[in-house]
């Protein structure tokens, strides 16, 4: 067992266990903090795959942004820990169709890609520069449209909050 394999299984265990607790726990706060561990484990996976920039962005956006916002929402809501948060509705057919399609995409990308499976595999150097060049040349239109989309979301949120 190399260190690479050990850390892979460590992160895999963190992700699976914490994701299981997120779904099963009755306490919303525990769910949120387990989600922190899940995000952390996924960031570890990205780092193992040589995608250092994605790993860091994962931490900044999900741990530093979304999760903190989630915790804020939970903590500022009155008596959230004792309420039943499970939904009563079970939509078996639409759920199984969507899950089937999604797992199809995942399995396809899993089998068709060459994944980095050891520390000796060469990874791309200077990833940030490469990503920046691709975003600013090849995908400039999509990048700008996404920026406008985020701006619209921001203005929408501000206008809803003012009401």
């Amino acid at each position: 067992m190399t260190y690479y394999t050990v850390s892979f299984y460590l992160f895999a265990a963190i992700i699976l266990l914490s994701a299981y607790f997120v779904v099963t726990t009755k306490n919303v706060i525990y769910a949120a903090f387990n989600l922190l561990l899940t995000f952390f484990g996924v960031a570890g996976f990205y780092a193992l795959l040589g995608a250092d920039f994605i790993a860091i962005v994962q931490l900044i956006v999900y741990v530093g942004g979304i999760l903190i916002l989630l915790l804020f929402g939970v903590m500022l809501t009155n008596k959230i820990t004792d309420t039943e948060i499970k939904t009563g509705a079970f939509q078996v057919l639409p759920a199984s169709i969507i899950v089937g399609m999604f797992s199809g995409v995942l399995i396809a990308s899993m089998t068709n890609n060459r994944w980095i499976v050891s520390a000796n595999t060469p990874v791309a150097a200077d990833t940030l520069r490469t990503i920046g060049n691709i975003l600013m040349n090849q995908y400039i239109l999509i990048f700008e449209v996404l920026g406008v989309l985020l701006l619209i979301a921001l203005i929408g949120a501000a206008s809803i909050a003012r009401k």
Binding site: F40, I56, V57, L59, V63, G64, G65, L67, I68, L71
Partner: peptide, 8 residues
């Protein structure tokens, strides 16, 4: 990025 763990 890692200093966001402090916030949590």
């Amino acid at each position: 990025a890692v200093t966001s763990l402090v916030v949590a």
